[in-house]
């Protein structure tokens, strides 16, 4: 479905004209409904890869290679065609939910805008749909949240709003850029659970960027390990765990702090236990409802 071939990203310093290559010809493929974890330390080019797919690479950068989504070459598209692809086929979940929403507009506008302005749904319908979407991501107090401004909501709450916006148009591909890094540990698990659940429910493909190997293993079908702008290896979590092909992956495995207790979905790599419950479509409603109760009380 998504096919990236020989992706090279070059950044040009506007003052000196000096060129720096950030991505060195990476290739990867993603099947329909598949989730791929893009893992690596900061600065390894994970987020840049997502930006290239969306066509939001920094000013003055040059992208070479091909990125094809269901046969459409994204790098060759521009203008309104690219805008439509972004609106209908792709959805970004950014790292910092507080930055992702316009601080001076109520949250409701964010959701309505995505449906109505980006995808030409009627405004009234979009407004109705927005409340429905919020309920889907486990927010009960929809009216209050829709009227709130971003700074009035917690990061976890906002990230759910962003997820709601992302799934609102049934995109082909979800691009999650460290969606939980900015959140505190307890909220992280909840948000990942919702993201995973919604993705499976809608059968969406996803690229999940994270530096957390355990987390990636818990939500993804395959993992790609990145270092210094290069994809070192791609494999299922089991393959990565049992037969790492590079020293770097081995080191990455060894350097993992033990964050998750046994039995936690993300503790899969550590214990070597069977598939985590999350991957069976866990993280059910009772959990999200409870979270919601806490949020409303805050």
């Amino acid at each position: 479905m998504l096919k990236i071939d020989g992706l090279v990203l070059t950044v040009v310093d506007p003052d000196t004209g000096h060129e720096t290559e950030i991505l060195h010809g990476n290739s990867l493929e993603l099947a329909q409904g598949e989730a791929l974890g893009l893992v690596g330390e900061s600065g390894s080019g994970k987020s840049m890869t997502l930006k290239c797919i969306l066509g939001i690479e920094p000013d003055g950068a040059r992208v070479d290679g091909t990125i094809a989504l269901d046969g459409t070459d994204l790098l060759a598209s521009g203008g309104d065609a690219l805008r439509r692809i972004r609106a209908e086929d792709l959805a970004l979940i950014a790292q910092n939910p507080h930055g992702a929403l316009n601080p001076v507009l109520p949250v409701g506008r964010f959701l309505v805008e995505g449906m109505s302005d980006a995808r030409s749904m009627g405004r009234a319908e979009a407004r109705e749909r927005a409340a429905d979407l919020l309920r889907q991501v486990g927010i009960a107090d929809t009216e209050r949240v829709l009227r709130s401004y971003p700074h009035q909501l917690s990061g976890g709450m906002l990230q759910r709003v962003v997820i709601a916006g992302a799934i609102s148009g049934d995109p082909k591909l979800l691009l999650a850029d460290e969606p939980t890094t900015a959140l505190d540990v307890t909220t992280q698990a909840e948000v990942v659970a919702i993201l995973d659940e919604k993705r499976r429910e809608h059968g969406l493909s996803m690229i999940f960027v994270t530096h957390d190997l355990d987390l990636a293993a818990a939500v993804c079908d395959r993992l790609a390990v990145m270092k210094d702008g290069e994809i070192l290896e791609i494999g299922t979590p089991e393959e990565i765990r049992d037969r790492p092909r590079t020293d770097y992956t081995r080191k990455l495995m060894a350097a993992r702090p033990m964050l998750y207790p046994e039995g936690h979905p993300a503790a899969f790599l550590a214990g070597g236990a069977g598939p985590a419950p999350l991957r069976e479509g866990g993280g059910g409603n009772d959990e999200t409802d409870r979270i919601n109760g806490e949020e409303a009380g805050a």
């Binding site: 972004r86 609106a87 970004l92 992702a100 805008e113 995505g114 302005d117």
Partner: peptide
Amino acid sequence: SEHVIMAIARGVPKQFVLWR
């Protein structure tokens, strides 16, 4: 800013991104 890039990434039309 992040939210403007987000709006572009969501496929919000140029004029809306610019003005809103």
